[in-house]
């Protein structure tokens, strides 16, 4: 029997920054193993939406569910802290600026969460780190410090760090936007590999070509709302909405 329950479900997500409504009631869901790309102009709310999935942004309205558990449920402060920490352990997040821990070696960056949060023994955590590094093609950097890595390598370590917690989903917040153009491919390659392994992923990106290649579904957002969504082929070739068309035209011709 297939599991029809969505892996991620967002219902009526609303968020204000002061008087500005940055999410105007967003609904979307991601099935198990599905890859959803979220595109749209800067300020459209796509990063805020992604960050609200693991509660780095607190929604002002609406619900977020991960695999049948409500992420932003109402609990007493201490109980919520416990709840959210355990929920976050099931979601990997990759940031635009990598956010590796500069005081820790590559191995420690990856091993620290399994060790401190799952009680994994040091030797096992190092073995896990090596395995994850192997996956992203950086096994030889295991004892390097982040400062000695290129941007592309940093991001691959960041992906390995997130994967080490064996998350149910991976969230990518413009993972290649801060990279020099020649370093984008190595990160995209790792993401494609994850896609091939049927990792559930939500990818906020500016790279239309990559979105078209890897995503099962594309969501186009503007001004805090979903304007249009569909299969990449449809959305990129035959967008229905004028707003989508003008955005894509700028991107594909520019």
């Amino acid at each position: 029997m297939t599991d029809v329950r969505p892996m991620i479900e967002v219902r009526g997500a609303r968020k204000f920054f002061g008087p500005l409504e940055v999410l105007k009631g967003i609904d979307f869901s991601v099935a198990r193993g599905q890859i959803v790309a979220v595109i749209g102009p800067s300020g459209s709310g796509k990063s805020t939406l992604l960050r609200s999935i693991n509660h780095l942004e607190t929604l002002d309205g609406g619900e977020v569910w991960l695999d049948g558990v409500q992420v932003n449920q109402t609990l007493a402060r201490r109980a919520f802290e416990k709840h959210i920490n355990s929920v976050r352990q099931q979601m990997g997040m990759v940031f635009q600026h990598f956010n590796l821990f500069p005081h820790l070696s590559v191995a420690e960056n990856i091993a620290i969460a399994p060790m401190k949060l799952k009680g994994m023994a040091k030797a096992d955590a190092r073995a896990l780190a090596l395995k994850m590094l192997d996956k992203v093609g950086l096994a030889d950097k295991i004892d390097a410090f982040p400062a000695r890595l290129s941007g592309g390598q940093k991001q691959r370590v960041a992906i390995a760090r997130a994967l080490a917690m064996q998350p149910k989903v991976m969230l990518f917040d413009e993972a290649t936007s801060a990279l020099d153009p020649e370093l984008v491919d190595e990160v995209n390659l790792v993401m494609k590999q994850l896609a091939a392994e049927h990792m559930t992923m939500v990818i906020v990106t500016h790279e239309m070509r990559f979105a078209a290649e890897v995503a099962d579904r594309v969501i186009f957002m503007a001004d805090g709302a979903v304007v249009e969504e569909g299969k990449p082929d449809d959305l990129f070739r035959n967008p229905v909405q004028e707003r989508t068309r003008s955005f894509l035209k700028k991107f594909l011709n520019g």
């Binding site: 693991n54 780095l56 802290e81 920490n85 355990s86 976050r88 352990q89 979601m91 990997g92 997040m93 940031f95 600026h97 956010n99 590796l100 821990f101 969460a113 401190k116 949060l117 960041a158 760090r161 997130a162 917690m165």
Partner: peptide, 15 residues
């Protein structure tokens, strides 16, 4: 950088 805290929290570390 506040990204340091966010990265740790996103892994499931408490405050």
């Amino acid at each position: 950088d506040k990204g340091q805290t966010e990265a740790a929290r996103s892994l499931g570390f408490g405050a």
